[in-house]
Write a protein that binds this DNA or RNA. Structure first.
Lengths: 130, 130
DNA sequence: TTCCTTGCAAATCGTTTGCATAATG
DNA sequence: CATTATGCAAACGATTTGCAAGGAA
């Protein structure tokens, strides 16, 4: 299963690096299609999964039913606006310690955690006032 | 949209209260069907969603693609075994403070967080040794 | 009688897969 | 040449929905 170069994979990764809003596979597809109208949705899904598997991008499951993808693979937390659905990065310290807290009274091994925050984003908060 | 009594909804809720393993809609369907073979999957989905909306049960999105349901609506955390896929409750203190940590440098309002832990459960850890 | 709820089946949504063909190493 | 990747379309699993019929208030 040696990896071979593919123009499509390159395009997908490049596109993802320009975006900081954690797009879904469908959004990636619609955009990459502008540069290569022949690309298929299946190829987009295959490459997003592959890139996520080899750790070049991150797959986010935020509970809205569809996966989001992030070219930023450094550990960081996300915020989802319950009003507009936008996803944004949070600048905050690591919460690794909560894994220890969780493992304190647990009969097994805890390897990690998944956490995301929700609420109202700055934009939506503004328009509420109007 | 006043709620009317329904035998099916009652059965679904009753069944869920007997289980502590956070079953999926399909598992609920298969079990409730034993008492009422005529019940339809759609009814199960409709009632699980309804009960979750009015807060009588909790819907868990654990990133495995299918929703799980929990009759215990008190705030608590969950653990998912990456080996066997089982879901269990964690006895641990509240992590409300992380919401404040996340909100410290954020231009919006954070209402809450979703956190779940993953790793190897006690059972799977045992069988690994064998 | 009014309106909620059901059973059933068809529809939808996000994602995966089989297969013949094209591109890479 | 051996192998991996692609486009396309069909297949999938989970969930939702339209609709006519049934049950609760």
């Amino acid at each position: 299963m040696a990896l071979k170069y593919s123009r499509q994979r390159e395009m997908i990764k490049d596109f993802l690096m320009t975006r900081h809003d954690h797009p879904t596979a469908d959004i990636v597809y619609m955009n990459v299609r502008r540069q290569n109208p022949n690309i298929s949705l299946g190829t987009v899904y295959r490459n997003l999964s592959l890139l996520a598997d080899i750790g070049e991008i991150q797959r986010l499951r935020l509970g809205d039913g569809t996966d989001h993808f992030d070219a930023d693979t450094s550990p960081h937390y996300h915020f989802i606006c319950t009003k507009c659905g936008c996803v944004m990065d949070l600048k905050m310290e690591s919460l690794e310690s909560i894994t220890d807290i969780a493992g304190a009274d647990f009969d097994g091994t805890i390897d990690g955690h998944v956490t995301y925050f929700y609420g109202t984003c700055g934009e939506c908060a503004k328009s509420e006032v109007l």
